[in-house]
Design a binder for these strands. Structure first.
Lengths: 221, 221
DNA sequence: CAGCGCCTGTCAGCGAATTGTCAGCTTCAG
DNA sequence: CTGAAGCTGACAATTCGCTGACAGGCGCTG
């Protein structure tokens, strides 16, 4: 799960980030409104934790802009204690939940889980693409009914492409999804990963569009 | 299995909690409606035992809010004797079962087992997975018909995996259901527990999918 | 109350699976 | 034809999970 934390106070941001990371999330941070707006508008996050008091573009405006652009990811707003007016405004702006400051980290984690769970919904347990079947409950992939043993990273790649079938997914997007903000890796890591997958699933399972990215399903030129 | 007990009378809550704990459940309690609503909305419980007479937000409203938010966990409602109107309202609010007060603890346990069983799709009181048989009434596990002596924690782990057979259960989920909201433990505690279980039940009883979690049943690669 | 045993968490080390890196090769577009 | 993009196999580093030993805590018993 990939989270965006929007918080201008560097020390607080570091604390919260550490807690969320410890809970198993991939956390990225934005420290001002402009950056937050751009990333929330162009990246796919599973949850955004948004502090309202920001320099530059303020948090509420950022949230309104996202919603105005049709972005529906869950947003958890950190409000000042008992700021009743802010809550009302926030509801209209499209926030999904609130947390008055100061708060217990435990509560932040609990609400984050709830929001993510709600947004994921109860989608189908299996998705089929060509000869592939992806069972999200057993976290297993079958080719023509034959189960394959995939490593965690391999599974996440197949799963992501499967959820975005018939669409060319740029390598940068895949790297973001697989590795989050960690840019330490060689660009070749992804290619090597794809190669290993094709060996297991068959060469036709994943297609390449030179210069654009990878895809599963129908994306013939 | 992780239960939430919502009951405002501290003495009664302690009694019921003791009985449920003795039956092998991880029990958490909430004593008012606000707390109950929040926890039920944000945490994963296998069953919620809900008393209707609560200070603040009353039990029925809490239940309606949960269902309104799309939460489907089984809820067992404790009603006043012969309160016919409450039952009807409860059905609409989404309760799964009723227990008129006063009741025998034995009946509470039986209905709890039944609800949990039903929610995970098993009809019978005993679950068979490979050579294992889990008797949820007697809290006993047998390997090829030979009863094993398991510690309370060991039984809870087997029971949870058995109820969720053929599914990969992430370690974080297991920790939640074994330990509730007590987060003090080392990640290794779970691994040590699994190791002890495998020594008793045989190495094949519990499978590992590196990077994903544990499972019982058919999730082999 | 002291002693004992059982249960369970912690620690440290080991082995293996996973994944990043490198170097050289192939393929494609212009 | 040529350079860049992508592929591949081998190798190495890292991470992850397992295990055995140990210790604290709790309840039971004499």
């Amino acid at each position: 799960m990939r989270l965006l934390l929007v918080e201008d106070d560097a020390r607080i941001a570091a604390d919260i980030s550490a807690v969320l990371t410890g809970a198993g999330y991939t956390v990225e941070t934005a420290s001002d409104g402009e950056d937050a707006w751009f990333r929330g508008d162009t990246e796919d996050y599973d949850l955004i934790v948004l502090d309202l008091g920001l320099p530059g573009l303020d948090g509420m405006s950022v949230l309104k802009r996202w919603r105005g652009n049709g972005r529906h990811m869950p947003v958890l707003v950190l409000t000042a204690r008992g700021s009743w007016a802010e809550r009302v405004e926030g509801i209209d702006a499209g926030a999904d939940d609130y947390l008055p400051k100061p708060f217990q980290f435990e509560e932040l984690l609990a609400r984050s889980r709830a929001l993510i769970r709600r947004s994921v919904g109860h989608g189908a347990a299996t998705i089929a693409v060509g000869p592939l079947t992806i069972d999200t409950r057993a976290m297993r992939v079958s080719v023509n009914g034959v189960p394959q043993s995939l490593t965690p990273l391999e599974y996440r790649l197949v799963s992501y492409l499967g959820h975005h079938r018939d669409r060319i997914v740029p390598p940068t997007e895949l790297q973001e999804h697989l590795y989050g903000d960690d840019f330490s890796r060689d660009a070749n890591a992804l290619e090597a990963l794809v190669a290993r997958l094709r060996k297991k699933l068959g060469a036709v399972a994943i297609g390449t569009r030179r210069g654009f990215g990878y895809y599963m399903g129908e994306s013939a030129p």
